[in-house]
Design a protein around this nucleic acid. Sequence first.
DNA 1: ATCTTATTTTTGATAGTCGAAATTAATCGA
DNA 2: TCGATTAATTTCGACTATCAAAAATAAGAT
Lengths: 410, 410
Amino acid sequence: MKIIGDSDFVRRQNRSLVLGALRNDGPAARTSIADATGLSPASLTAITQDMLAQNLIVDLPPSPDARVRGRPPIRVGFNRQAAYACLVELEVGRVRYSLVDYGATLVDRIEAALDPKLFLGRDPVAHLDEGIALLGQRNPAEMRGLRRIAISVQGVLERARAGLSWSPVAGLAERDLAGPLAARFGVPVLLCKRGRLLAEGTRWRDPTLRERSVATIFIGSTVAMGMTVRGQVFGRGEEGATEFGHMNHAPNGALCRCGMHGCIEAYAADYGVLRSAYSVPESTPPAPVVPAADYAQLIQRGNRGERAPVQAFRLAGRAIGYGLSRLLAVFDPDCVVIAGPGSHAFHLMQEEFFAALDASLVAKVNGRPEIRTLADESEPIFNGLLLHTLSDIDQHDFAPLPAVAAARPA
Amino acid sequence: MKIIGDSDFVRRQNRSLVLGALRNDGPAARTSIADATGLSPASLTAITQDMLAQNLIVDLPPSPDARVRGRPPIRVGFNRQAAYACLVELEVGRVRYSLVDYGATLVDRIEAALDPKLFLGRDPVAHLDEGIALLGQRNPAEMRGLRRIAISVQGVLERARAGLSWSPVAGLAERDLAGPLAARFGVPVLLCKRGRLLAEGTRWRDPTLRERSVATIFIGSTVAMGMTVRGQVFGRGEEGATEFGHMNHAPNGALCRCGMHGCIEAYAADYGVLRSAYSVPESTPPAPVVPAADYAQLIQRGNRGERAPVQAFRLAGRAIGYGLSRLLAVFDPDCVVIAGPGSHAFHLMQEEFFAALDASLVAKVNGRPEIRTLADESEPIFNGLLLHTLSDIDQHDFAPLPAVAAARPA
DNA sequence: ATCTTATTTTTGATAGTCGAAATTAATCGA
DNA sequence: TCGATTAATTTCGACTATCAAAAATAAGAT
């Protein structure tokens, strides 16, 4: 599908730049946006005029900061009422519904425990429907401006992205999740992979990672990865599987939650490390949920030098290290970020991790990539989902809007 | 680096569409190009007028085909004299210099054997310089229109892409190849990975693979891979390592030509299969070159069911299969193409290949990707290099040229 | 009250697109 | 041979983006 260049193409591009600048840097004066985007001030006037007429953005009151000479800048920011999105984080033991506005402010939130076996008896769509509807009852005005429902899921997305081919949440896979909810609430439903959101959330939090090529590896109850290629999230289309946690580490190896053998996750996720540490046979089906305290305690014991946990974390480091070395054979990022609870145990994994990495040609000749650990406890998944969803609204709903004829006085 | 939308942006985009259509489909009438690109006939008139004035394209004489009613179309095609490129294929035992014109026609070619140890004693830049200069002496007029030198190399490109960090050709790595040649001949020098060219060459030959996401695996004297993501070659930037052949298959496994242990190549390239078939220890340094006849004979013996070669190809299939399964954990293409001499032995590898693939979660839940073998003996590397280089000229030299004021009569 | 400064808007020119009408160059049919 | 038909191409006029430069605006400084 070819995109031809016309005035619409130009407007789309420049509106997208403006919305992106606002999304990245927050409210700003027209001149600042002009500097940030490279557009002329005249164009900023025209573009913001359109957006104001569409109630997409608002002029903010002047800030009472210490000001110098000259006309005070008028900062513009997102009109929070321009759109709303319902973000759903669906995890193994928990579900959380958040209503956010276009300005990325949380409006309301419902959080609930999730019986791991609930969806064996109950239709997950009905459950989600109920949660979203409850949020709507509590916020009817906002719900009328709803533009997206976005759901963070774990598992393998089917190619059409309407459901999951496989999920660690029992009973969730092999159903059309997006279709019925889209029909019910009349808005597009996005299914987003948790691992990939982590990458987007991380990029969002750390400005030095923007514009770079980054692989973010999450280590926790699962092992997941997201990649950005020069600031763009890789795999928006159908080809991005990014099942890094289920990359094979050892043929016929330890049993993974997914039912396969030898996945990285089976060695490096919390349940894998626990299983190794307690010398449970590798063929034993993994525990559905590992309490955070148990994992933290294991790290403590590792820190004290106890043999079993130390060895378990070494195995985990080796699995992640070989996985990364195999990834590097295909994709050579500027920087690798280790995130999630497992990042607190990275010092226990790193010896084997680096040994595995150094066994690869790319790491040997180009040097190890920059490795950072990021102990970000501040909701990277929520933030990734938030940014992803609002950007989606920016790009698809608001960037291509036609000019408003009445916006420009004669 | 933000790209702002302006008239230049539009011209660039649309000129690029027109050049791309011409590159894909060959000479065509303005109306056909309009249909292919989606541009209006009026725009095609304007764009082709500019390009004609710049001598980029030429009106072709009417073809004497059986014609129907109506004004006969005037087909336009590349002006072959608009640019020339020197393509160098540098391989383990051979070097070949080709001079091609902007219409993708071969003008002249020099081919020579390459002593595998030559570059231990001689500066490779001087050797390349001499070869290119000889081509220039034989074609002085064309050489004045030279726009690019493109070199197909094997090995790991250093990040700046001016040389190689590692190469199977002795003495070639750790030198700046591009810089001196660019200075000497006054044109940009592109270093291109052989494996990736294969992907581009394959895409070029098979129109059904355009616009799709494809991984092409080359099996021969090396194992290499190239990927396209929705028709775009992945890894134009610095992040594309694509050292698939040197992805680790088995920790501390067979010795590879690259000096590491357990690379896929060490099991699946010709030398690896030969080594297995003759029960040579895996730690034995590989032969520098395997004669094509020896490899073909091995396939013959495999076809006859001889135990040793059959087992060797099974090992190879297993290595490729696990490599692909690991790739699928990151990148899920529509189609996987097996190319190169090894594709003739794919039937001997496929049982283990598919078994390995089926051990991965992605293949299990999403099904195996479509696998094709492509016994393309028709110079996919040369064609990949050709297409890559001419497209580079299209995009960088000719798409952004400013409009010619005189082109439009008043 | 006037000067200075920085932000924002207005104005006029430019360069692309597109749709519709006009032109061009061939075949078809009487 | 000449007009009708057909299809490709060009021309024309409208439109909508941009930008640079000039003008207007809104404050502090003197």
